[in-house]
Write a protein that binds this DNA or RNA. Structure first.
Lengths: 228, 228
DNA sequence: TATAATTGTTAGGCTAATCTAACAAATTTA
DNA sequence: TAAATTTGTTAGATTAGCCTAACAATTATA
């Protein structure tokens, strides 16, 4: 069983990576700032969470959640959002008041409680802020991120960020008509040289695997199927 | 603001003194046992709570709540019982499952939350165990116990126990149709021999003062008036 | 590429709440 | 009332989570 504090670190990491549009990993200072503690404190906890195999962390490196860590994080997010929904729908809290109280309620330990609450609320799919609520199995219809290279042929996806932030790369990206929130469709993959044929705003282009690897996207179709 | 732990000590003290039928003060070992900690730990906390003027405590003496301490304790009891009511009535928890979860929920800090929950539950007066719920002002209708002999003429009361546990007495009690939770109404007191005329399940009977003295009851009407 | 700025780490302390072990006071019992 | 038992206290240690201050690694910039 995790402590209140450990749970908060996992949740923060989830928010900064899985649910963030820009990054897939988080730095120590960033985590500390998000939690309102000093980097030294966060550093201690990151080492502890690494020992528990809940996060990937290496000295001077960025952190991400392990599969196990993500599982816990999803449970907390589920609890948080169900409580927010309860406060908003049943207790007539206003939209902006729910978060603070849910921050406390999300740490209540009782699987039964949360499953019954879910039922009581009639299995809501989104919370009052419009964020998706993970179901009892920890499945979240999150806009999961991956690189363009990993996308299925034929799928349409949305660009949410880049991995390489160099000016050169960004200019290249720009020149292809790509930008944040832009929809990209993968038309095909050339057998010969692995180039991807993409369509952006009705305009076709071919990009290298190296390029595609550096474009972060989220795919609605995959997310719908996934229900991991 | 009190810590989770401080709250638990105050609640324990409340249970062991104010809500107990036998005592009005509690010893260090007793408090420790109730909380599942060692006496040494309880001792530390008692000194701390004394410094905060939440309890009366003297070295080698028994402890009681101060007015301020009782105020906090009542808030916690209120929260605990409202949550129990919520779990039982809305989430369909069973009678015996509510306590454990309420132990956690009672520490959520939000006056607004608890007042809205109270409203949502339509201002219940008792929790699923039949225990009174303090109102928003911290007023509690405690189900105070006394002997049947002390009850007012004309009042209806509920039998909650006996003083004499001998088989002979219990059989006598039984023969009059009396049992735990049975409602008893006092019809009159005979001037001549002090016998009490009672009505149980529509059946009238006469009992001696000695008999009445050994029946423990709680009176809803008296409790309603008291509002200490 | 050398320097400056940022980011991350370490060592050493602090506090709250707990513990054990030793002891002291109070109470019960012979 | 003296001894035995129970009850309560103290001192010193431990753990989790936080801090500051000093330092080290990395990244950005001149």
């Amino acid at each position: 069983m995790l402590s209140f504090t450990e749970e908060n670190y996992l949740k923060t990491l989830f928010q900064l990576t899985v649910e963030s549009n820009e990054k897939v990993e988080a730095g120590t200072n960033e985590i500390a700032a998000h939690l309102g503690v000093k980097p030294a404190s966060a550093n201690d906890m990151l080492k502890k969470l690494k020992d528990k195999k809940l996060i990937h962390y290496e000295k001077y490196g960025k952190s991400t959640l392990t599969k196990e860590g993500r599982k816990y994080a999803l449970e907390i997010v589920r609890k948080h959002r169900l409580w927010e929904t309860f406060l908003y729908e049943k207790l007539e809290f206003s939209w902006d008041e729910v978060h603070e109280v849910a921050e406390q309620l999300e740490h209540i330990q009782s699987k039964k409680l949360i499953d019954k609450l879910d039922k009581f609320l009639n299995y809501p799919e989104v919370d009052p802020h419009g964020d998706a609520i993970p179901n009892a199995k920890g499945e979240l219809e999150i806009s999961q991120r991956k690189s363009l290279l990993e996308e299925e042929i034929g799928h349409a996806c949305k660009m949410v960020g880049v991995k390489d932030n160099s000016a050169a790369f960004l200019q290249y990206v720009n020149s292809l008509g790509l930008s944040i929130n832009q929809t990209i469709r993968i038309k095909a993959r050339e057998e010969f040289d692995d180039l991807l044929e993409i369509e952006v705003n009705g305009k076709k282009n071919r990009v290298s695997p190296k390029f595609a690897e550096n474009i972060i996207i989220t795919c609605l179709e995959c997310n719908r199927l996934r229900k991991k």
